[in-house]
Nucleic acid binder design. Structure first.
Lengths: 191, 191
DNA sequence: CTAATTTTTGACCTCAAGTTCAAAAACCGT
DNA sequence: ACGGTTTTTGAACTTGAGGTCAAAAATTAG
């Protein structure tokens, strides 16, 4: 019983995620969140406790959807190298095609909140680990399929690719598409 | 004539840089700056105009000293690969050995202020460009000296290395030393 | 010493962020 | 329709950020 919720929590979290992604954690005020979600400030606090807690949900959602996208793109037909290139290119292009270059929420978070928020750092770490796992699995798959050199260490290679990807997303804030694509090409020529 | 300055502006900028680096732009209040520099708030505003302007000076100083360090380390005797490894390792270790993992001020800036501050983005871009130039020069030097493969495109390779370095500094916020060193090893095996 | 000039400083101001809350609204079972 | 329960909401509160300012302090020229 009691008055029913007038909004879908998942939708609110998704909208909040977009806002945090675009404006950063500190840059997003409760008023911004109320406007973005269409839910009054007080109600948001009633449902989510605090700005930080809502952000936690948003980051979690980001990690989940990000992993799903990666999984989807990496698993399409093609060699490991082709699939990784497609995925990296997709991320870079998505960012550059948007109205603002918001980069990666996880990275933005760890850079902005850094060490001051242990919990956030751990959440980001989990997201990165998952990505590395997906990359390693796809490389290993390619190795067994024969399109990746026998001698490649999938785990080590996945780590380097993750570093490259993180770097690309940093550089996507200040460099143009041609440069970023060139980096992808050169980086992938290696393995 | 007039009352003489009671502080060295360069020293104040250096102290401010340390504070911004550790706490971020938004995370650093005028009160923090006054405490860190030993100069009263009002005096800081009198000398530097605004928090943002002081930050500008701090970022400029960061770029300059960073470039000097890179130049110094890269130019010591050894092959290009050895020197790049030494430089990357130095940066990672410096970050991990500090009391807090503050990463790279330039990167933190572009992630935190991102597109909302065009000027900051441009400043960071200049810093990145300079770094890429230094890497490219060192690789080209190695190519001519014979310790780098003839077929390597120094410019393209420098871009990839910059991406790797940026990625390393992001990952240095959440991963441990062993992983980061492993990434350096694998990434450098390539060229 | 005085006048002119420049710095220094903490008090003060304004505004918005982040949060709390009391009252109104919307539901359900009886 | 009433009581119990949960949500919704804007108003209200507290706090600190970012910045301004008037008065005091420190200098030099004359």
């Amino acid at each position: 019983m009691g008055r029913p919720k007038s909004f879908e929590p998942d939708v609110v979290v998704a909208r909040a995620m977009e806002t945090f992604w675009t404006k950063g954690f500190a840059g997003t005020s409760p008023a911004d969140l109320a406007e973005a979600t269409g839910v009054a400030k007080g109600s948001l606090y009633h449902s989510f406790g605090s700005k930080r807690e809502l952000f936690g949900k948003a980051l979690e959602l980001y990690g989940r959807t990000g992993a799903e996208l990666a999984e989807e793109v990496l698993s399409r037909p093609g060699t490991a190298k082709e699939r990784v290139r497609a995925y990296f290119t997709l991320l870079v292009d998505l960012d550059l095609d948007g109205p603002v270059r918001r980069g990666c929420l996880a990275q933005n978070t760890v850079e902005e909140l850094g060490v001051r928020d242990e919990e956030a750092a751990r959440a980001v770490h989990r997201i990165e680990q998952r990505m590395i796992g997906l990359l390693a699995a796809r490389i290993e798959e390619g190795r067994l399929a024969g399109d990746v050199d026998r001698g490649v260490d999938a785990g080590a290679q996945a780590l380097v690719l993750q570093a490259t990807l993180s770097g690309l997303r940093v550089m996507a804030k200040t460099f143009d598409r041609a440069v970023l694509h060139r980096i992808i090409d050169t980086a992938l020529a290696g393995f």
